[in-house]
Simulated scan of single mutants.
Amino acid sequence: MNAVNSSTKALLKIDNRIDELVKKIELLSYVNPTNIETEKEKFFSSKYLTDPVFTYPSINFDRFKLHRELFAQPIEQIEDLEIRQLYEDIIYAYSGLIACIETIGEGKKFYYNSLHSFGTPTEADVENAKFILHFKGEDAHDEQFLPKYRTEETQEKFREYSTRYDFSYHIKLSDKMSAIAMVLNNIQTLVINKNHVFSENEIEVLTNHEIGVHMVTAINGMLHPLKIFSHGFPNYEETQEGLAVFSEYMSNNLTVNRLKELAYRVIAVDGLAKGYSFSRTFRELHNQYDLDRETAFYITLRAHRGGGFTKDYLYLSGLKKVYNYYKQGKDLKLLLTGKISLSYLNSIASLHDKGLSVPAKHITDSYLQNKNSNKTIEYILDNLK
């Protein structure tokens, strides 16, 4: 028993130390350019020929020291082999993210580190994207898609939606982001793009996506004895984004247009592997796929920021995996316990058996009942490879 106790003590100590170290590694805080709007204007003025030159926030931690301290953790003191392997994977995963951060803006160097951390679309992913693009989207002039809510009203809508959850969080405004809203897990903060005017549909999508999943799992993750649930299992991004888009589906807010947006992201990330420049990716989306230039610019920006950020293809593959999981009648609550990955469910079950994890306290509101009434969406999801 003493051996078990000492092993558990060692595990908790290592987990706490890793948590202290990785709190500094919020990749999205560093990979979003600080001069998006000015570079966009220059790019449009150049008739889409001159690639933007982006600048990025400075890094406020010692990268070498962080690598060294991560690998100095005495994981051999963890006697349970499965849990020891998990923490070895965790250390390698976070070291990979540090490598991403330290090479932001360095072209191919960042791209290869991004590949290592997030992978790249498979042939099936690209085929799924092209399959989706064959479907006719909703009329963009429908009332629900028209820009309507400015920052103050948008904040109010988020606050109103959040009353269904028993937790609080911070809201911050930013004009230096490629997304229109995002959650920073480590400080439980929703960041809203103050340059954007939000439509009714965007509000519905983002409340369910950002608060209903990203914030729910961030808060749930903090309730475990182990901090790994809040700072994230290896490769958790695919499961997280899949859960978040799945919440849009369950709340009847997932549209063909939204699926097409996720498909365009796959196409843009696939272009990185082909060596496409920013301007070539943009022209493919704008000319070949007939996307308006603002949308084409931001999808291209998301893929090319940092030097080639491959994470964006994971939304579609994650959605398909979570949708299949749901269709198999499996328990979605397990996936809400924190920033977890489908590929580590056995390890999570093992942690639960040992009293090192707890059930999800907060449950995504849309998961309680499937309200999707869109047969086209159903057909698409059922037929993705």
Rank of each mutant, 00 (worst) to 15 (best):
Y94P: 01
E204V: 05
E37D: 14
Y236M: 04
L336A: 12
I180M: 10
S45K: 12
G119A: 08
L381C: 09
L133K: 12
D139P: 02
N32C: 08
L81Q: 12
S168K: 06
Y289V: 04
T103C: 06
T122H: 06
V183W: 00
D15A: 01
A181V: 03
H214W: 03
E238Y: 06
N32M: 08
G105A: 03
G308A: 05
V205D: 07
T364V: 11
F131H: 05
P57H: 01
V245F: 08
E241Y: 04
L184W: 09
E39T: 05
A360K: 00
D15R: 00
S58I: 05
S317F: 00
K23M: 11
D365M: 02
R150N: 11
E102N: 05
F198I: 00
N113P: 00
S199W: 07
E241D: 06
L12T: 06
L12W: 08
H352P: 03
M1D: 11
Q73I: 10
E82K: 10
T34L: 12
I171W: 14
D142I: 12
K385I: 09
D19G: 09
R164L: 03
L27S: 10
K42P: 05
E79D: 13
F233A: 02
Y165K: 07
M182A: 06
Y30W: 10
K42Y: 13
L81C: 07
Y367I: 05
S58P: 14
K385D: 14
E82T: 07
I75A: 15
S7L: 14
N5F: 15
E200H: 14
K321W: 07
M182C: 04
K227Y: 11
K108D: 00
K47G: 06
A3N: 13
A360I: 01
N287T: 11
L254M: 13
E152F: 11
D290Q: 12
V126C: 13
Y276G: 04
L356P: 03
E237P: 06
I211T: 03
Y315D: 01
E76N: 09
Y165W: 05
L173V: 08
I132R: 02
L226M: 11
E156W: 12
H196Y: 08
S341V: 08
S357G: 08
E102S: 07
I14S: 08
D353T: 12
Q155F: 05
H224Q: 10
V216F: 07
K47M: 09
L342P: 00
I91F: 07
K194H: 11
H116I: 04
S45T: 10
S279Q: 04
F44T: 09
D270R: 10
I75K: 15
P33S: 12
G221I: 00
Q369F: 13
F135T: 14
V191K: 01
S29P: 01
M222G: 14
I25W: 01
P225K: 00
D382A: 03
Y56H: 09
S117T: 15
Q240G: 10
R265Y: 03
I98V: 15
N374A: 15
I75H: 15
T55D: 11
K136I: 15
N2K: 11
Q155S: 03
K65G: 01
G338Y: 09
S247K: 01
F135Q: 15
I25Y: 02
S178I: 06
N2R: 11
G242H: 04
E138W: 06
L285N: 05
A3I: 11
L226W: 05
